[in-house]
Amino acid sequence: EEAALAQMLAAYRGVWVFVEQTEGEPAKVSWELMGVGAQLARDIGTELCAIVIGHGVEHLCREAFSYGATKAYLMDQDVFRFYRTEPYLDACCHLIDKYKPEIILMGATGMGRDLAGAVATRVKTGLTADCTGLDVDDKRNLRQTRPAFGGNIMATIMCDKFRPQMATVRPHVMPMPERMEGATGAIVREQITLNEADILTKVIEIIRDTKVGVDIAGAEFIVSGGRGLMGPENFAMLQELADELGGVVGASRSAVDAGWMPHDRQVGQTGKTVRPKIYIACGISGAIQHLVGMQDSDVVIAINRDKEAPIFQVATYGIVGDLFKIVPAITSQLRELKASKRKG
């Protein structure tokens, strides 16, 4: 039995990253996954491959090479124009059956989770959700670390007797790898026989959200406010500081629930995961559901008048005091600094 298992495991090689795209436009999380995928491939001495499925998407293979893939499996057919579970599921399973990867990574996005859950079920393997840490043990098994119970605990999950090992990762959790202009790789073209008439689901319309919301998830500087802000009008003070830094304003769920800020600014478990250079938490206590959304920021600054607030446990620099005094002080000093630099 053990020999059969070893033989099965040895039949699967390669690290794959699913390249998510909508109307030819790639989701950035795919490139973030290339970064961690390349590391895993190096550690176990195998290749990093991209799975590119769509219509008119060959350019994404070249893009994938520039982020570290050395091979791309391309399935370019009319039926893949819009994402629908059935055809994409068929396409992925076709590739998996034929080329047997040992690891598959997908973004934990609406599309990625939809597809990953279906693929893992059909190929009858394990799938670990929302990983924040991925590495391999000495038997080339993937160690998948993820938060559960709303971030109150971390768990390391193994899938050592099944292949492929599948994992999803949320956007902005892994750092973006550097782009290598002009890097090349091999494109492997595959097709399945599937016609539009075979597919029951129809995409009637894609409605892009027109209200160009602020993309807090991609921001380098975030100044966030919580219940300590006392009211919506005081967020203007945070906006001033954010403007000075070239960043955006975020919020805790309490501030969002109170109607002080729109939901697209919410950081945390039920909001966005962010990873800015500097995250400034003002009047935010640091509930675990908030921390899971921002604790990977490069530098966390916490301003809170309660020195026992849990936010100080993740803060690189904590300031105990009244945010209504400290925030304006930081803003005005930054302004002076810039003005004096300009004068030379």
Partner: peptide, 8 residues
């Protein structure tokens, strides 16, 4: 197929 090997 998956199992929790560590919890912390």
């Amino acid at each position: 197929p998956t199992w929790v090997s560590k919890i912390f």
